[in-house]
Amino acid sequence: MNPTTKPILICDVTLRDGSHAVAHQLTAAQMEVYARAAEKAGIGILEIGHGNGLGASSLQVGLAATDDRTLLRAVRPCLSRTRLGVFVIPGFATINHDLKPAIQDGADVVKVASHCTEADTTQRLIGFARESGKETFGVLMMSHMAPKETLLEESRKMQSYGAEGVILMDSAGAYLPEDVAEKVRFLVEHLSIPVGFHSHNNLGMAVANALEAARHGATILDGTARGFGAGAGNAPIEVMVGVLQKAGFATGVDLYGILDAVAVAEREVITTVPSIRGISLVSGLAGVFSGFAKHVERVAKEYAVDPRDVFFELGRRRAVAGQEDLIIDVAIELADKGGKNRGHP
């Protein structure tokens, strides 16, 4: 192993991003059994909850089967070495209603996320999490939509609020490895806090992008068991860990342990292993939030429009995370224009 490379902190988001894949229907029992396996594997952080984080159970994004507090209280006793993480987006969740209770219920790590140009909305929540003594990261969602200079400026804001690291989220699975290299390298060069990367697999680049991020200095990487996550899924954590090991990075994760955890996930958590279907590819090409996939499929069917057209139109309108209601607006507009292109040569 190259002694100059820093160890990589592996953040397992199977039980958070994976919620998108099952319309936020994960149960406390499923989370408990996977959490025990993640603990055994030596995972750094296990992030749990609704796909859009604390307080995001809604008609807009999807109602969760189980509330945040029940999930946190169930998973908390399953972890000791592995830290328990929560994800939170200001605008969905508030300090009083969501973050404070989550910290009371034992969250160790708080990731506060905003759209990649709106970091100043995270100030209060990052501040609160730090004052509560929690390990706190800032997350820039949909980061393919902003140039590296903007991402640096927004990261610096998060750093000034107290974030102990900034994670670039490829929420749409739209990055190619050269985009990762350019943006991660630039942030690592100019920030004094760690930089992370969160992949989606819409273009088949999730693991390659995670590796590229590590090679350019990222030290926090997100992955999920078998890629279980929104849309085409994430970087499969077991593959990511294996590839990082082969490339000479230390992760602290035990390979057999994570393979065993993945087997548990396959048996107890994952309903369908994500794959790159046509509409996921289109979603990545259009640069649309991966979490929209299930909604787009449902709405497109209902209004008899081509889901691919819906994705491209959402991309044209530059929809951001949390704008699921736009899907229906777009579908109605397309339906008014004559619906599916198919059959209308």
């Binding site: 809604s58 807009q60 200001p90 605008g91 969905f92 508030t94 300090i95 009083n96 209603h97 759209h115 140009t117 709106e118 909305t121 209060r124 939509m145 530059r318 929809a319 951001v320 995370a321 949390g322 704008q323």
Partner: peptide, 29 residues
Amino acid sequence: IDEYIETTQEALEKFTGCGRAKAILVLNP
């Protein structure tokens, strides 16, 4: 934003009599 959410929810509850209201705010650049 937290105050925005809390105040909007309070108004929704006041005007609808519904005890469960949620407000979400999204900024689009």
